[in-house]
Simulated scan of single mutants.
Amino acid sequence: MELDIAVHPATADRFDDLAAILAPRNPDAPACWCLSYRVPGAEFNALAGADRPARLRRYAEEGTPPGVIAYVGGEPAGWCSVSPRSSHHRLTRSRTIPAVDDVPVWSIVCLVVRPGFRRQGLGHALLAGAVEFARSRRAPMLEAYPIESGDERISTALAYVGTTSLFEAAGFERVVKTSSKSGGRERWLMRLPLEGEQPPEVDAAGG
C-alpha cells in the first residue's frame, strides 16, 4: 500500500507537529532538539527543558524554517534539518567537517523518522522534500555528512545523520571523506548541485 506522504517546511505554525517528532517522553530530558550544530556549545549546554524547543522555534519565527516535516496521512512522521551551513555555528568552526570551498551551501545534519513509520521508505520521501525545499529557497548546493553504512543495518541512534546509500539514491555524490565519525563509523561530505534548476518559490514538496 502506497503511503500518503506530504512534506512541508517547519514553519512556526507547524511547530507542534515538529515537537511530536522530536520531543522526548520526559520533557526535562536533555534532548538535542537539533540545536547541537546550530548554537555555540556554551549556549547549547545552558539550555535545558523547555528552553531547547523554544530556541529551535525561534528559527522558524525569525526567518528561514530550520527544516521540513513529513506527514503520512496528515500525521507528523518525520523531520529533516536543512538550512544554510552558515546558520550552523558548529559547522562553520568544524575541523572534522571543514568547508571545501566558498559556495554558500545548505546543510542536512539530521533525519528523524518516528517509530511506527520506519522501514517504509519514508526517509527517501523526506530527503526528496528537503531537496525541493532548499531548491525553492534558491540554495545553490546541498550538502550532507552521512555515515558509511556498508551492508549492515544501522541503529536509529546512528541513523540520524543518514547513510551514504540513502543520499546516493537521491543523486548526492561523495566529495571527501571527513575525519568526523558517528558511532565509530566514517562520515562522508556529499553534495547535490541545485543551481540551474530553480523553480518559482513554493511551499516545498507537497505544498
Rank of each mutant, 00 (worst) to 15 (best):
Ala70Pro: 14
Tyr71Gln: 09
Tyr71Asp: 08
Val72Ser: 01
Gly74Met: 09
Gly74Lys: 09
Gly74Val: 08
Gly74Phe: 08
Glu75Trp: 04
Glu75Val: 05
Glu75Arg: 12
Pro76Ala: 00
Pro76Glu: 08
Ala77Tyr: 07
Ala77Asp: 11
Cys80Gln: 05
Cys80Asn: 06
Ser81Met: 09
Ser81Val: 02
Ser81Asp: 15
Ser83Arg: 09
Ser83Met: 11
Ser83Pro: 00
Pro84Trp: 15
Pro84Ala: 15
Pro84Cys: 14
Ser86Val: 04
Ser87Glu: 09
Ser87Phe: 12
Ser87Met: 13
His88Trp: 11
His88Lys: 15
His88Val: 13
His89Thr: 10
Arg90Pro: 10
Leu91Cys: 06
Leu91Arg: 00
Thr92Cys: 11
Thr92Ser: 11
Ser94Trp: 05
Ser94Leu: 09
Ile97Lys: 14
Pro98Asp: 10
Pro98Ser: 13
Pro98Cys: 08
Ala99Gln: 12
Ala99Gly: 05
Ala99Cys: 07
Val100Lys: 10
Asp102Ser: 13
Asp102Gly: 07
Val105Lys: 06
Val105Pro: 00
Trp106Asn: 06
Trp106Gly: 03
Trp106Ile: 09
Ser107Arg: 10
Ile108Val: 12
Ile108Gln: 14
Val109Cys: 08
Val112Met: 11
Val112His: 14
Val113Asp: 03
Val113Pro: 07
Pro115Glu: 03
Pro115Arg: 12
Pro115Phe: 01
Pro115Thr: 06
Gly116Gln: 14
Gly116Trp: 10
Gly116Lys: 14
Phe117Ala: 08
Arg118Pro: 11
Arg119Glu: 10
Arg119Met: 07
Gln120Trp: 06
Gln120Gly: 13
Gln120Met: 13
Gly121Glu: 12
Ala125Met: 07
Leu126Phe: 02
Leu126Gln: 02
Ala128Thr: 04
Gly129His: 02
Gly129Ser: 07
Ala130Glu: 01
Val131Met: 03
Val131Gln: 01
Val131Ile: 15
Val131Arg: 01
Ala134Thr: 11
Ala134Ile: 11
Arg138Phe: 15
Pro140Gly: 05
Glu143Cys: 02
Glu143Trp: 04
Tyr145His: 13
Tyr145Ser: 03
Pro146Glu: 04
Pro146Asp: 03
Glu148Arg: 13
Gly150Met: 07
Asp151Trp: 10
